[in-house]
Design a protein around this nucleic acid. Sequence first.
DNA 1: CGGTAATCGAGACGGTACGTCATGTCTTACA
DNA 2: TGTAAGACATGACGTACCGTCTCGATTACCG
Lengths: 202, 202, 202, 202
Amino acid sequence: MTTGGATQTRRRGRPRSDRARRAILKAAEELLLAPSGDAVSMDAVAARAGVSKATIYRWWRSKETLTLDALYDEWATASRPRDTGSLRGDLLSLLRPWVELAGRRPYGPVIARLITEARTDPTFAEEYQARFVQPRREAGRAIFARSIERGELPPDTDVEVALDLLYGPLYHRLLHGHASFDDRFARDVVDTALAGILPRRE
Amino acid sequence: MTTGGATQTRRRGRPRSDRARRAILKAAEELLLAPSGDAVSMDAVAARAGVSKATIYRWWRSKETLTLDALYDEWATASRPRDTGSLRGDLLSLLRPWVELAGRRPYGPVIARLITEARTDPTFAEEYQARFVQPRREAGRAIFARSIERGELPPDTDVEVALDLLYGPLYHRLLHGHASFDDRFARDVVDTALAGILPRRE
Amino acid sequence: MTTGGATQTRRRGRPRSDRARRAILKAAEELLLAPSGDAVSMDAVAARAGVSKATIYRWWRSKETLTLDALYDEWATASRPRDTGSLRGDLLSLLRPWVELAGRRPYGPVIARLITEARTDPTFAEEYQARFVQPRREAGRAIFARSIERGELPPDTDVEVALDLLYGPLYHRLLHGHASFDDRFARDVVDTALAGILPRRE
Amino acid sequence: MTTGGATQTRRRGRPRSDRARRAILKAAEELLLAPSGDAVSMDAVAARAGVSKATIYRWWRSKETLTLDALYDEWATASRPRDTGSLRGDLLSLLRPWVELAGRRPYGPVIARLITEARTDPTFAEEYQARFVQPRREAGRAIFARSIERGELPPDTDVEVALDLLYGPLYHRLLHGHASFDDRFARDVVDTALAGILPRRE
DNA sequence: CGGTAATCGAGACGGTACGTCATGTCTTACA
DNA sequence: TGTAAGACATGACGTACCGTCTCGATTACCG
């Protein structure tokens, strides 16, 4: 992991400056989401953080890895989904906070950049998946598993397709920006995906 | 328009070299989809096309605009959807050729790059939408309109959400590459979106 | 010669447009001596003359050749030296009009450019010499020859050195611009150089 | 100053690579005086020096400024004039080494290029004057001052004109190349000019 | 308390691509 | 055939980032 976690055995030498680490992440995040929208440059991040480029590259392999961390700082706070007892409730508790978070600021371009890089560099792709995609997808899988256990869904439900039917539309609007990306849309997606577009025959 | 359309009244000077235009588009397309995946460089396109950079910049404002045209050359051939008489049939005839085309080569990274640029440069966003997104979306709208006319769907159906429920999952896999992007998935998406994830009560 | 002289035998086809020729020379001359001082570009000359670049290149091999002609248009008017009966008078009648002409406008940079080109391209060097240097030098030689014939100067006078002693200082100030380039300087040069060239009376 | 002088107080960051600096100057000088005579290109200098273009532009504002330094590297070695006790001796000790140096290689076109640039860009003109013109001219002024002090020359001698009478012919041949530029010519110029400058014995 | 070692700031470096510009050639349609 | 329009290949320009590097200065620990 880039950011480093527990300080395993206490290393020799000067310890890492946490002030620098935080300044870098803050600067990166501010530049990423700047209204101007122009791409972040490492020189700019270094300058704004009052830090040397070498320090950044000591802890982050690339601009994209830094972007990942800068974003993750905020996104990790997305609330964990609750067990509401129903599939619909669980999914709403999974997706609505995520949509609220993703819509709060212009994340679209940033995510697009991350995806671009992920499709170019397989190593980065792994990090991206591990941090941004799989955790939420795994949470979704757990929800569907509970629903199947409850007998709400048949055991042969194709969960992967179901997840794409939920996350796909959300990412679609987040990235393309062709229509509103809000709580209402999140609810519409959940409801329509669960019930289907065609009306039920009574 | 960059590609130029009908030759209105025959201009005065030396006419545009169609040989150069085709060579540029071909070179761009080949480099875009090169297995190496490294980004296209304008110098590389110029060199491969046996053309000067100035000539490229005379006709395309930016690398992304060129990318758009290069891709469009292939994608414009995607077959028009047929009127099959049923919503499901129409949608399948809309989406399956598109999936077949998009999956034939590694378009994911390319599309990701276009989206990134679109979210950065509003002028480019318009071109991208007009060429790649709206035409297919419009075709989808026509399909839903026919279906409503036939009484298959209620008139208050939210078509925009429905379209996102169809295109969203497809783009999701195309861009993220987390699962297979194929004809089977296209059919699953259509069927599940139309019928819903939850089982019908009989 | 580039400009062409008498139309020998009446050529076939459309005759050369004299209007275009004059417009080109005028445009070139105006741009060359523009206060901005930025270099002339052939596109700019063509645009200002309302002429196509091809037309320029049909009649002038290069930008420098055109510059030569554009300048020559003005400089050819420099009055012929008169036979005043004395070496000093002859030289003053040779150099003072030339200095007056060369100082009237910012010719320094232009001449510098011509010299640069002449030292690079031997073909151009010949044209430059033939048009700008040798005629005046030849006039100088004639003056010295008359002076020797009159017995004013000994027959073994090194005329080439003498000419450089006269033209050298003038070109020096014209090109370097480190001190005033005016009629007074011309007279000073003639008087001082002459004092050294003329034999001492014993 | 671009070349840098004494290392004042030891700067913070990575120190300038002297290896790169020398390689750049050497490459520039080699290309400037290449027999081919084709103009130097910054790309060529960078390639030959094994250096990036950015590094060149970090230290030199323009191609001409670099040329100045590259040339100066060699020309700064021109011997200081000695006090020989006579005006003639002093001037010969000033001019002959300069002529020897300037004639050793094809400097004509290079100097012409510098002059052209100096007459276009006033900022560069100052640098050019300060480095190439004024030092030698100042040395000349000192020589004349000593001569006046000795009573060899009258106090109202126009030193500036005298200097132009000496340097003018030399530059004239150096730039125009119309006649031999050698030690003999230097002596001829000094002798002829001096005869005009020195007062007549009555 | 002095040595060892990893960190930090500053910033220069080689490299790659950018998008622009000027040169001189060329290919049309029109005169 | 000459000309206006203007596209073309060539190649240099100067700039912007990238990620690496080399300094001197700092800050811990460990002996």
